[in-house]
Design a protein around this nucleic acid. Structure first.
Lengths: 167, 167
DNA sequence: TCCATTCCGACCGCTGAAGTCGGCTTCCCG
DNA sequence: CGGGAAGCCGACTTCAGCGGTCGGAATGGA
């Protein structure tokens, strides 16, 4: 499995929120019942989304959650990272956070000459995953769930794509 | 993590075998020492590759392993599947093996109208992974390890691509 | 007949995923 | 102004599977 249930439930929660339309806050209990997901677990999941600034909450009675932006502005790479943490093909595959997309392969670190062959493979795979996540927005998923396969931003303008690790 | 160490070690084993050139059989012990991997564990890994018909073995003294085909004929999707099993973005994502690439999303199975929104996302991600694996052969990795980034079949003829699950 | 090597099933510790629980805080509404 | 509905939060539990290890049997070259 590439993703955990956190990612799954979190995305479904967002889709549900998006379908609600952004009127007044939606209580988690309502979402849990509609999606048939454990409420206590959803609480922990939505907390991650809130910390990441993807949803906003209002406490107290008649409180609940709202998307903090338009669904078309919520990219799935951001969502998945918030829920599952950084996705890497292998544990040795570390995305250097110091601004560059430098990738470090830990084995053969000391003595070896040249990169290990698996690096090419992991890089390509991660590229495929990241690209898929970047090109999909919450609005896409909502549109898809409404049965319409059309109107998907399958190809978004090249300029908007984030830099991706390349082999 | 998308892949386990089985996949990692198995691929490195294959690269090592490929570099040996296909003369007489290579003992696992030699590979374990070169790659600094636990021998007992490698035994279990190479067994998977043998069952999948990717390597061939000769027993007894001076025995060992050989690639059963040319490295350029060994695609990584086949290798990874043999080592880690079928790769799916989520547990609910089942590739129907009855010849069609039909994908079944288990939740909302009974009452729901239309597909759940996550299906689109998982399908796109899996597409990205599968495509990356299909387009990479063992020969690519061997060439890469020899320091040469050139001569990679980065884009192989479209006609040769296997059918991929599409949204 | 050694001994190197493949083959195979049993076992095992640990980590992280998945989910629960109890209690606290917040704050709308009557 | 208080009760209850909702969010917030840390501690806890359970369990599968990953990442190995071990011991021994089968095989076959020298």
């Amino acid at each position: 499995m590439i993703f955990t249930t956190k990612a799954e439930y979190g995305v479904r929660l967002l889709v549900d929120l998006g379908q609600a339309g952004g009127g007044d806050p939606v209580a988690l209990k309502a979402i849990a019942e509609r999606e048939r997901l454990p409420l206590a677990y959803l609480e922990r999941i939505v907390a991650l989304l809130r910390k990441a600034g993807i949803v906003e909450s209002t406490r107290g009675a008649r409180g609940g959650y709202l998307l903090s932006r338009d669904p078309s502005e919520i990219r799935m790479d951001e969502v998945i990272e918030a829920l599952d943490g950084p996705i890497a093909p292998m544990s040795c595959f570390i995305d250097d956070s110091t601004e560059g997309q430098k990738v470090v392969c830990s084995h053969h670190a000391i003595d070896d000459t040249g990169p290990c062959g698996t690096k090419l493979l992991w890089t390509r795979v991660q590229g495929g995953v990241v690209r898929a996540l970047q090109q999909t927005t919450l609005a896409d998923l909502i549109a898809f769930e409404r049965g319409g396969v059309g109107a998907l931003s399958t190809q978004r303008p090249v300029g908007e794509e984030l830099p991706v690790v390349t082999a």
